Computed example of a mutant assay.
Amino acid sequence: MRQSLRDKAIGICEAKIAKKGEGVGLSFYAFFANRNDDPDLLMEAATWWIKTHQLDHFEKAVKIRDMIAAGQ
């Protein structure tokens, strides 16, 4: 996953955690607007989430933040 997407994803995870607490879940769609304006980036996130790590559709934001921060 490219660094710009990692930074954006970590920021979104942190914002959701700050707003709703450590139990908040999200999907990779949370990293994007409600339109498909960058399909390559969307597929990059989907590949990381689904194919590489075989994550469920919704995961805890804390888990995702920590995985990305660890370089996974």
Rank of each mutant, 00 (worst) to 15 (best):
M1V: 12
R2K: 15
R2E: 14
Q3K: 15
Q3H: 14
Q3L: 15
Q3N: 15
S4W: 14
L5K: 03
R6K: 15
R6M: 13
R6E: 13
R6T: 11
D7A: 13
D7T: 08
G11H: 07
G11W: 12
I12R: 02
I12W: 08
C13P: 03
C13W: 00
E14R: 15
E14L: 09
E14K: 12
E14G: 11
A15N: 09
A15G: 08
K16M: 07
K16L: 12
K16Q: 09
I17T: 04
I17F: 07
I17V: 11
I17P: 00
A18F: 05
A18Q: 15
K19F: 03
K20V: 04
K20C: 05
K20T: 06
G23L: 11
G23H: 09
G23Y: 08
G23I: 05
G25W: 06
S27R: 07
S27Q: 01
F28A: 00
F28R: 01
Y29H: 09
A30N: 04
F31A: 06
F31S: 09
F32K: 01
A33W: 04
A33K: 07
A33E: 14
N34Q: 05
R35T: 07
R35M: 14
N36I: 08
N36F: 02
D38N: 15
D38P: 00
D38Q: 11
D40P: 01
D40M: 14
D40F: 12
L41R: 01
L41S: 02
L42G: 03
L42I: 10
M43P: 00
M43G: 05
A45I: 01
A46M: 04
T47V: 12
W48D: 00
W48C: 02
W48A: 05
W48R: 06
W48E: 01
W48K: 01
W49G: 01
I50C: 14
I50N: 13
I50T: 14
K51R: 12
K51M: 12
K51D: 13
H53Y: 15
H53V: 13
H53R: 12
Q54G: 08
L55R: 14
L55N: 10
L55Q: 06
L55G: 03
D56I: 09
D56Q: 11
H57I: 08
H57L: 12
F58Y: 13
E59Y: 09
E59P: 02
K60N: 07
K60Y: 14
A61T: 04
A61K: 00
A61Q: 02
V62D: 01
I64W: 00
R65P: 05
R65F: 09
D66Y: 09
D66T: 05
D66A: 14
I68T: 00
I68F: 08
I68E: 06
A69M: 11
A70Y: 09
G71Y: 15
G71D: 11
Q72R: 08
Q72F: 09
Q72T: 11
